[in-house]
Amino acid sequence: MNREAIVGCILGTAVGDALGLPYEGISPQRSPKLLGPPDRYRFFFRRGMISDDTEHTCMVAQSLIDANGDVAGFTRSFSRRLRWWILALPAGVGKATARSGIKLWLGANPQRAGVFSAGNGPAMRAAIFGAALDDVSLMLDLVRASSRLTHCDPKAEYGAIAAALAAKHSRDQESVDANLWLDKVVVAVGDGGAELIDLLRQAIRSLDAGETTTAFAESLGLDRGVTGYTYHTVPVAIHAWLSHPNDFRRAVTRIIECGGDADTTAAIVGGIVGAGVRREGIPTEWLDGIWEWPRSVPWMQRLGATLADSLDDVGLVKSPTVNPIAVLLRNLLFLFVVLFHGFRRLAPPYGQ
């Protein structure tokens, strides 16, 4: 049922994001020495907090509720939410997203607010589309609208499409078929996505050869960590999903062990796998360990259930909201913890 898949996707995104956040920007060689294995939260007194990956996923879900299947309505709602999100001083926001948010405040048309970037911002918020929507054509239109609002490089859009279709496949198929999923991606991205398709085929060949996700990342030259370039992020995330499609714990920890943009890669993998395993397949201690307000775990569950109701035409449904003052106060605390981690990284132990 889509309700369970939607909730699993949102919570899976949040857990992956929170687990990967302390490891962001650290090489796979140094992270075990500095932080230890990614088997528990290491961000704030053994608790986890979410970042922009989960916040964008939540804003997408809210905008889907507001839009009621209308692509233009979704764009308006998401652009409005993005403007106010930028104003709440989020820490670690990507350059392309920040620039597009500023352009929106300056009066830019949402369809022209995106900057030419192939960053992984659109991919980090794409899984929820696949978890929620049955109509593939509508889903693709919405993914494109979401992508172009912040990133106008087609590569960012193609990466987001691959992630959304992965979440849909994870939701729909008890046994994941990599080639069946890839066939759908080929059709969706067309000739323009040929480079991404080649990379995804490499991921499947690596999987067939029994390679680990870390080894596959190294074969792409990412031995110092997965970058925020979507043609690095998405193929490695897909490899982690296909390696452990029904094992949330392994899929997420393996992608974090690759280093680099670990919160985003883990959020993408968490959302895709979460859509398949549902809430029950996400480790309870990881759900209980998220320390968040006002976007708490119960709030995210309510958001997912409300989105499912809106798609099922259960009367007039209103999107759950968050108190903007609460968000600002939370973001100030979050920034303090991020700065602490930044200073901690200046000290030993050092990696290779």
Rank of each mutant, 00 (worst) to 15 (best):
I161S: 10
D313K: 15
L180R: 14
L140K: 03
V236Q: 06
T13E: 14
E24V: 14
R76G: 09
F129N: 04
A132E: 11
C9S: 03
V317F: 02
A209Y: 05
L140Y: 01
V236S: 14
A237N: 14
A131V: 00
G342A: 03
H341Y: 08
G36T: 12
A237P: 11
L104E: 05
V71R: 01
S175F: 09
D53C: 14
R279P: 00
G130K: 10
V314P: 03
A275C: 08
G225Y: 08
T13A: 15
Y350H: 13
D313G: 10
R171Y: 05
F43C: 02
L207S: 07
A347M: 07
L133W: 07
N109A: 02
R330F: 15
K168S: 09
V277L: 12
R148V: 03
L222G: 09
G12M: 07
V186C: 05
T230D: 04
H239L: 08
T227N: 03
P32G: 00
H239A: 12
T213A: 13
G8V: 04
R224H: 07
G210N: 14
A96D: 08
H244C: 04
W299K: 02
L142Q: 08
D288C: 15
L21M: 06
G101H: 14
G270E: 08
G119K: 08
A113L: 04
Y158H: 10
F343K: 08
A326S: 11
I26R: 08
L87Q: 13
L346S: 00
A131F: 00
Y350F: 15
I50W: 11
D261A: 05
G159C: 05
V338D: 03
A123H: 02
G225T: 01
G69R: 00
V71Y: 01
D172F: 12
W85E: 06
R42F: 00
V186P: 02
V60R: 12
H169M: 07
A163I: 10
G16K: 00
I65E: 10
Y23W: 12
G121S: 13
W84M: 08
T150C: 11
P283C: 04
Q301V: 09
L104Q: 07
P122H: 01
S117A: 11
P90W: 00
D223H: 12
F343Y: 14
Y229V: 03
P37C: 05
V252Y: 03
G119Y: 08
A145P: 06
S31F: 04
L333K: 15
S77C: 01
G304T: 05
A98S: 09
C58V: 06
I255K: 11
F334W: 13
L307M: 05
G48Y: 06
S219P: 14
I197V: 06
S243P: 14
N120T: 04
G121Q: 11
A166M: 09
H239D: 06
F248R: 15
G210S: 11
D183V: 02
W291V: 01
G36S: 14
A162R: 00
A88Q: 14
Q352I: 03
R76F: 13
